[in-house]
Design a binder for these strands. Structure first.
Length: 953
RNA sequence: GCUCGGAUGGUGGAAUUGGUAGACACGUUGGACUUAAAAUCCAAUGACCAUUAUCGGUCGUGCGGGUUCAAGUCCCGCUCCGAGUACCA
């Protein structure tokens, strides 16, 4: 009987579910003191399209690893859940009026069905859904904790805001080294005590780790919504092409910038890919330099500019301010006023995106004002230029045209002098941007110092004169945390006189209200502005009707919701908790036991989003004593994307005829997507299916590969071919392959093995079903190894040496492969092993039982079935993973490659125990050596024992 | 522009510290079994040259150099492709 995967897979999936085989033990029930091991996948967003074959790639890899760790005796936590708040459900709701909760629930159901078919060893008892009020209650709770905290740079940690209030009372804010907004004004302890309560609240908001601030957003009046940067093309909305304007809105932000240094340092000890670490480093963008003050002539104002090159201070020939810089209007002279205003108006019109796209055009205007060089006291003209970004540093640049290409281009364009301060360099064509050992010149006390030394000396001099300070700048900006959406976590916030107040923790969750439509309101408020019941009664601590708002006891609630990354920034800790989910976000003993994620598997597209925010929240929760770990994810593997092989047919523009790939076409044509499910592995299109797929093609004419019109009946043998192109797998490209179909046709084990066999886990690769037959063949051969027809043929006989050798070689290889995540080569090893055992006609339990366990993480269903036939009661997942025994692998002879001048000529079996000289002697005596040498004496013989003999002549 | 990856047969991809390049699989070709097909099994398969089918030879890991007895692997200089990021002072 052949291997009946359908029955077997269904049987074991049922068995695992019923026996709760993969339920991780809680620390309290874990009496045998098994070591914990936490394997986590990035949880999916349950979209309406369902899973395609690309999604399970990472899940299969992590599942293999989780199963492997269970075999090794670990108490493995391997959960799964859903990142179920998000935009697609909301957009679907806008179009259809269906409540997002309803579609989300349906999508989750479908996801679960699809996942279950692949035989994952998830512990579903710990499932989380970010859109579940029982879950987002704790997301809201964390938000409140952030609101109640500030960041102390001195101790490098977050602390309760009350402690800051105490400090204000004692010493004001002047001397404090804490994270805050840029524009806080100084106050003394006396000032603080004199502040009204409202004023105090306003000040504190500038220090809290989540705070309200005016932020510019892209507002599209026609669509009535706020757009993200990537939803805008050339200043128009991507959807519909409507104009977009910049609008200031009050938004919640997260003070992630406070954690910049720790987020950077923390990367060192993580076992993540270099590329992700590097992206995070770039994103954080640490640059070390100095902040230098420039007095403005005839004015009380000062400009401070950040530079990484204080050594070039004597090369400054002008300054440039961003058009948005606050000093611009204050310092512009009367005669330049009109020019400057025109320029500002013009740049404001251009969207940020346009400005970035158009880097080559140099534009700017002179303000008429002059700054004073802090050391030479020379006047420096102040310009405005849109190459200076308001959001980085101070929005002002001390321009050193000889050392910076942008300053250089600007100076050339406006005919500003370019003094050279680098010895023996040519700056006639471009700036000298190197940071090497070149010496400085024309720079007073910095003359003849190499650049690196000069930087230090310059900073010291500036500090001594009180005109500058050493300063580290980070590119990382605070993260906007408000979204004008419906389908997200509501903020636990109400407003008293415009100031935000937190709802008391014990009244959480604050549940999403019902709305009749999911669009923003006519006057541009977020969808929650449509809710009838969206006010907070501070007496009853309940949500009440809007028209009861009296600003005494009943107050308006926040209308924004939290972004997608809120719920995903802490979910890894939620899985640790099972019983007390209503009482805590996760209980202390669970957190202490599981610590953090040992292995995290997911795509690299979250490098600067989710992976940074989760690290931020973890560090924050640790600072405030809720966690003991500093990092959420210790080791990470990033799986590559599986791409689709789209199929294209050529359609004539005039006739509408379809042309086979190889046929001659006498008119202009377009390539249009054809559903890949209508194309076989030889790229032949199923024409009847194609006509049914798109009714408008019903009467189209098809020109076959032979160049003739295909008329059915006569031309049955003539193929109609399509061309193939690799693209991202997507519904709109009709190249989606559904894992369900693969499971139906070949089985879950085959799907698992094939996805692993496809290539290295971290590489992007196209899905090509053609290769599936290889792993299907392997499974059949594996089955055959234990069966002869219907009979189970495993015996208790002693295995012969050869069989043991191949078994232990395979064990050794697979063990190292799993640790390295080289699953493609493990599958190869299995194939080699099974082929050899088949040839040896091995049916000894001594070999076949360990092999069954070895294969189990990869192809669990077939392994369970065989395991049962081998007479075991328990699941194969509880079996101990085999370890290789060196005794079967050691050999006393080695096949030596014998090379002449580095080229391999023949091989010779030699005893491994031989010494160098003995090897050389035996090789030289061999007749083939003599033949190669033809009587000559070799110059040198290189013998590497155990490896190779090379004869140089 | 910068940063990080990558380039190996017809295809996907193997190759410890430099040590027999092309494992394994797909595909292709030939064969066995069969009335036939499917399934299965066996063999060949980097390119070129040579020869009597033997024994053989030359070239081959994007390109050009280098180090070495020996380079896919190390070093220098390029080309191309992919990803991220972008006027970051």
């Amino acid at each position: 009987m052949a291997y009946q995967f359908k029955d077997i897979e269904a049987k074991w999936q049922k068995f695992w579910a019923e026996n709760k085989t993969f339920k991780a033990q809680q620390p309290s029930e874990n009496q045998e003191t098994k070591k914990p091991f936490y394997v986590l996948d990035m949880f999916p967003y349950p979209s309406g399209a369902g899973l395609h074959v690309g999604h399970p790639l990472g899940y299969i890899a992590s599942d293999i690893y989780a199963r492997y760790k269970r075999h090794q005796g670990y108490n493995v936590l391997h959960p799964q859940g859903y990142d179920s708040f998000g935009l697609p459900a909301e957009q679907y709701a806008i179009q259809t009026g269906q409540h997002p909760a309803k579609t989300t629930k349906a999508n989750i159901k479908r996801y679960r069905e699809q996942l279950d078919r692949i035989g994952f060893s998830f512990d579903w008892s710990r499932e989380v859904r970010t859109s579940d009020p029982k879950y987002y209650r704790w997301t809201q709770w964390i938000f409140i904790q952030l609101f109640k905290s500030y960041y102390d740079y001195e101790d490098q940690k977050a602390k309760p805001i009350d402690e800051l209030v105490e400090k204000f009372q004692k010493q004001g804010n002047a001397e404090l080294n804490v994270a805050c907004d840029e524009d806080v004004s100084e106050f003394s302890a006396e000032d603080w005590k004199g502040f009204s309560d409202e004023k105090k609240e306003e000040v504190l908001l500038q220090y809290r780790l989540t705070y309200l601030a005016e932020t510019e957003v892209n507002w599209c009046p026609a669509l009535g919504t706020v757009l993200a940067n990537d939803e805008i093309v050339n200043g128009l909305s991507e959807r519909g092409g409507h104009p977009v304007e910049r609008k200031k809105m009050k938004q919640w932000s997260m003070r992630i910038s406070a954690y910049a240094e720790r987020l950077l340092q923390g990367l060192e000890d993580l076992e993540w890919s270099d590329s992700i670490k590097e992206s995070q480093r770039n994103w954080i963008g640490k640059s070390v330099g100095a902040l230098i003050q420039f007095k403005i002539q005839n004015s009380k104002f000062k400009i401070s500019a950040f530079t990484t090159r204080p050594d070039t201070i004597f090369g400054v020939s002008f300054m440039t301010l961003a058009p948005e810089h606050e000093l611009v209007e204050k310092i512009t002279t009367a005669e330049q006023k009109e020019t400057v205003e025109n320029y500002i108006a013009e740049t404001a019109k251009r969207s940020e995106r346009e400005r970035l796209a158009d880097v080559k055009t140099i534009s700017g205007v002179f303000t008429g004002a002059y700054a004073e060089h802090p050391l030479t006291k020379q006047p420096i003209p102040i310009w405005i230029g849109d190459y200076v970004l308001a959001g980085y540093g101070t929005g002002a640049v001390m321009a050193v045209p000889c050392g910076d290409q942008r300053d250089y281009d600007f100076a050339k364009h406006f005919d500003i002098p370019i003094p050279n301060i680098f010895k023996d360099t040519d700056i006639s064509k471009e700036a000298f941007g190197e940071k090497d050992n070149t010496l400085i010149t024309n720079s007073d006390f910095l003359d003849d110092l190499p650049i690196k030394k000069a930087i230090k000396v310059a900073i010291q001099a500036l500090e001594d004169k009180g005109v500058g300070t050493a300063k580290t700048n980070y590119r990382l900006r605070d993260a906007v945390f408000s979204r004008q959406r419906y389908w997200g976590e509501p903020f636990p916030v109400y407003y008293v006189n415009g100031l935000p107040k937190m709802i008391d923790e014990k009244h959480l969750p604050l549940k999403l209200p019902e709305v009749e439509k999911y669009l923003p309101t006519e006057d541009g408020e977020p969808p929650l502005g449509r809710a009838q019941t969206w006010a907070w009664n501070t007496k009853s601590n309940q949500v009440v009707d809007n028209n009861k708002i009296d600003h005494k006891m009943v107050f308006p609630l926040e209308l924004n919701t939290m972004p997608g990354w809120a719920g995903s920034s802490w979910y890894m800790f939620r899985y640790m908790e099972t019983d007390k989910r209503d009482e805590v976000f996760a209980s202390q003993d669970a957190l202490d036991y599981w610590q953090n994620v040992n292995l995290y598997v997911g795509g690299s597209e979250h490098a600067t989003g989710h992976l940074l925010y989760s690290r931020f929240w973890t560090k924050f929760l640790k600072d405030r004593g809720f966690l003991k770990v500093e990092e959420p994810f210790q080791r990470m593997i990033n799986q590559g994307m599986i791409l689709g092989e789209s199929a294209f047919v050529k359609r004539g523009n005039e006739t509408g005829n379809f042309y086979s790939e190889g046929s001659e076409i006498k008119e202009d044509y377009q390539k249009i997507h054809a559903d890949v499910n209508l194309v076989n592995t030889s790229n032949e299109l199923d024409i009847e299916g194609f006509k049914q797929w798109r009714p408008e093609f019903q009467n189209a004419i098809f020109i076959g590969e032979n160049g003739k019109v295909l008329s059915f009946g006569e031309d049955l043998g003539v193929a109609f071919k399509v061309s193939r192109e690799v693209e991202k797998m997507s519904k709109s490209k009709y190249n989606v392959v559904n894992p369900d179909d693969v499971c139906d046709e070949y089985g879950a084990d085959a799907l698992r093995l094939f996805e692993m066999f496809l290539g290295p886990i971290d590489q992007a690769k196209p899905w090509n079903t053609a290769g599936l037959s290889g792993v299907v063949g392997f499974l059949k051969k594996l089955w055959k190894l234990y069966h002869d027809g219907d009979n189970f043929t495993v015996t208790e006989d002693k295995a012969d040496k050869k069989a043991l050798k191949i078994l232990h070689q395979t064990i050794k290889k697979v063990n190292t492969d799993i640790e390295d995540f080289s699953f493609n080569t493990s599958v190869s090893s299995f194939m080699i092993c099974v082929n050899e055992l088949n040839q040896l006609k091995c049916n000894s339990r001594e070999v076949l039982e360990p092999l069954c366990v070895l294969v189990a993480p990869f192809a669990p269903h077939i392994a369970e079935e065989i395991w049962e036939k081998l007479g075991h009661q328990n699941s194969v997942s509880l079996a101990k993973y085999p370890e290789h025994e060196e005794q079967y692998l050691v050999e006393d002879t080695k096949t030596y490659p014998i090379s002449f001048n580095g080229k391999m000529r023949f091989t010779l079996d030699l005893k491994l125990s031989l010494s160098k000289d003995e090897i050389e002697e035996q090789v030289m005596q061999d007749e083939r050596t003599q033949k190669q040498l033809q009587g000559r004496t070799p110059k040198k013989v290189i013998v590497v024992p155990g490896k190779i003999v090379n004869i140089v002549g």
